[in-house]
Design a protein around this nucleic acid. Structure first.
Lengths: 234, 234
DNA sequence: TCCGTCAGTATCCATTTGGTAACTATTGAA
DNA sequence: TTCAATAGTTACCAAATGGATACTGACGGA
């Protein structure tokens, strides 16, 4: 067994994160564990097979750990190991560079411009989202309470809904209305739950929300999720 | 023409540095221009064709510029553009990570351990090289003057020679002795010129030294060059 | 018992990428 | 005129990677 030799230190790193999707996976895992299906949604263009093999390689290199939950249906979560965390400065820098040099002067502009976004959140969160999505990136942001959201849903016709679970309303009824909004179940209005901790995450999951982001949300992550969910990438 | 869409900012960066060798090329260009043939030597394993295509892509992305010198034989130099420089933090971090996590506790140990290295340099440079290569990485370092080097060359039988051009000796005689040392011209004892400015570089080139490093040398770069030149990578 | 969901495997084929080796273009010197 | 050196290009083949589709296996609910 020959030990692999490298021509320079960069090759050592590349050996581990050189795959086409590996840095992207590490980036999406940066803020906490993600399920297999979540990653599939977050990375449009990747196939099941490729995602599997990339995750297996990251696991073999001990950058990512895989945890199986014996619930029904079975859930598998991937997260960064402590070793994987040591690569965060690199993925963070790559994210920064990408945002700074994205074609189109502001990252996400073309993804969300003109999009109708309904926000059900507390004041602070609402204000931030209105600034980041509405003012900076020209989305049509509508921040409101759960009650008002339910009342005006039909006439607002949002493309996507963001729900802040620090409000402890029961969003079940809203979720059902979103699902009922389309004959075709594929065309349900998508919703993202904003959660601050595991308890809120469990509430979101139990109310049928499968997509969530940890607060405080990082804006590029939010934009990427919105773009993926509304199909602005295809 | 459809504009390319990205799932997250990292993909933007990957689009530009994602190739198998691109980060390595950027790393080798970090400290100044390099000729095509130099890059070939510095990156064992890469083929002419692949190096050409990678360089062409980097050029197309305006990270690298190509400059042709109409001398004989023709010389082509590649260097980072100002835009390419903006990626330096990333390649630097990748280099750091690689050094820190290289298999084998110290980067370069297996490349230079036991190697006979002859150093012709001023005291400061000699001391640094003895510390970095000799003490830390167990090479057999011999620092000496040009005169002594010429006198003892046969009995020292170095694997490689490092020559500091801040000394303004004429190293032509030494170079000739190194070339004469082998029947097979392929097996000439390799030499690296250490240069501090373009004037020293021209002197090195005119005395027949085609491999050089800018002072202050970065130790990982030096080790990589030594390893490549002495064939410790094959 | 059957169905649906999630997280995969398995298989086959297409595309992309990489490697080898030979050939080319330009220049100046012998 | 020929040769050597540098920096390529071209043609052809092999290997790696990616994509489509179908199938599996575990679990709980209807």
């Amino acid at each position: 067994m020959v030990e692999k030799q490298y021509g320079c230190p960069v090759e050592v790193t590349l050996d581990v994160i050189g795959g086409k999707w590996k840095c992207v996976i590490l980036w999406w895992l940066r803020r906490g564990a993600r399920r297999f299906g979540e990653l599939m949604q977050l990375m449009p263009g990747i196939s099941q097979k490729v995602l599997t093999t990339q995750l297996r390689q990251l696991e073999a290199d001990r950058l990512v750990s895989r945890q199986v939950f014996q619930v029904s249906p079975r859930r598998v979560e991937y997260s960064l190991t402590a070793y994987g965390e040591t690569l965060r400065p690199i993925t963070d820098l790559m994210c920064e560079w990408g945002k700074a040099h994205a074609p189109g002067f502001q990252f996400g502009l073309k993804h969300v411009q003109g999009l109708r976004i309904l926000v059900v959140a507390n004041d602070i969160v609402s204000q931030r989202l209105e600034a980041e999505l509405g003012e900076l990136r020209r989305a049509d942001v509508n921040a409101t309470s759960l009650v008002m959201a339910l009342e005006n849903l039909n006439q607002l016709q949002p493309d996507i809904v963001l729900i802040d679970f620090s409000l402890d309303d029961d969003f079940n009824s809203l979720k059902q209305r979103l699902e009922a909004s389309a004959e075709d179940p594929q065309k349900t209005i998508p919703a993202i739950a904003l959660i601050a901790n595991n308890q809120e995450r469990d509430r979101a999951l139990s109310q049928g929300f499968r997509i969530y982001l940890m607060e405080p949300v990082e804006i590029s992550e939010l934009i990427a999720e919105i773009a993926n969910l509304t199909g602005r990438l295809e």
